[in-house]
Every structure is written in structure tokens, then in C-alpha cells.
């Protein structure tokens, strides 16, 4: 139980690390949000489950934290992306090109 908990903890930490790496490597804001939200969220879920396995008495509080993170992390990233998009931050060059193409196709 203890060892399984620690292994899941480590996997979660690796996903958080990958999320941060993606935040560093991705070319524009929108892709960074994608990587940041997804990987860091799954990483924190893994860490919460790991802590719950190591210390089973804490499960109820950890369950509340898990539910809260699952519900709010996508909402906050969605809200901030919407704000960026409305304020006219252009997506990465290739995205922009494709979008213009789409608009042309739609108008035709």
C-alpha cells in the first residue's frame, strides 16, 4: 500500500514536471495553457491519490481537494483563454493562417 502510494506519487510528480516542461517549450500562449492545464491537473490528481494511499485516514479531505481541482482547473484556464482571445491576442502564426483559410472557405 505504502509503496504503491509512493509510486503513484512519483508518477504524478513526473506529470507535473512534464507540464512545466511543456509550458517552457510550447510556441504560443494557447498551446502553453493546454499543456499546463492538462498535465499539471493530472499530476496533482496522481499526487492526491498517492497521498491518500500512503495515509488512508485523510481520504475525505483529499476527496474534497480532488473534486475541487477537477472542477475548477479547466474552468479557470478556459476563462483566461477566453479573455485572451477576446482581447485579441493572436494565436500562433500557423494557427492564424489556418483560421484565415477557414474564414475564406466559410465565406465562399
Amino acid at each position: 500500500m505504502h509503496l504503491a502510494g509512493e509510486i503513484i506519487l512519483l508518477i504524478g510528480a513526473i506529470f507535473v514536471f512534464l507540464g512545466a516542461l511543456g509550458l517552457l517549450r510550447m510556441p504560443d500562449v494557447y498551446n502553453r495553457i493546454q499543456v499546463g492545464t492538462k498535465a499539471v491537473t493530472l499530476g496533482s490528481i496522481g499526487i492526491i491519490i498517492g497521498v491518500a494511499l500512503i495515509n488512508p485516514l485523510w481520504w475525505s479531505k483529499l476527496l474534497v481537494i480532488l473534486g475541487f481541482i477537477l472542477l475548477t482547473s479547466p474552468v479557470s484556464s478556459s476563462a483566461i483563454t477566453k479573455a485572451f482571445y477576446r482581447s485579441g491576442i493572436a494565436p500562433w502564426r500557423e494557427t492564424e493562417k489556418n483560421k484565415n483559410q477557414d474564414e475564406k472557405e466559410a465565406s465562399l
Binding site: V16, L23, G36, V40, S44, I69
Partner: peptide
């Protein structure tokens, strides 16, 4: 967005 991610990392 990095502040957002960093706050989640701090919670973890």
C-alpha cells in the same frame, strides 16, 4: 498562465 500553473504546483 504560469502564475496559474505555479499556484497549482504550490498546492501540490
Amino acid at each position: 498562465i504560469s502564475a496559474d500553473a505555479l499556484s497549482l504546483i504550490t498546492a501540490v
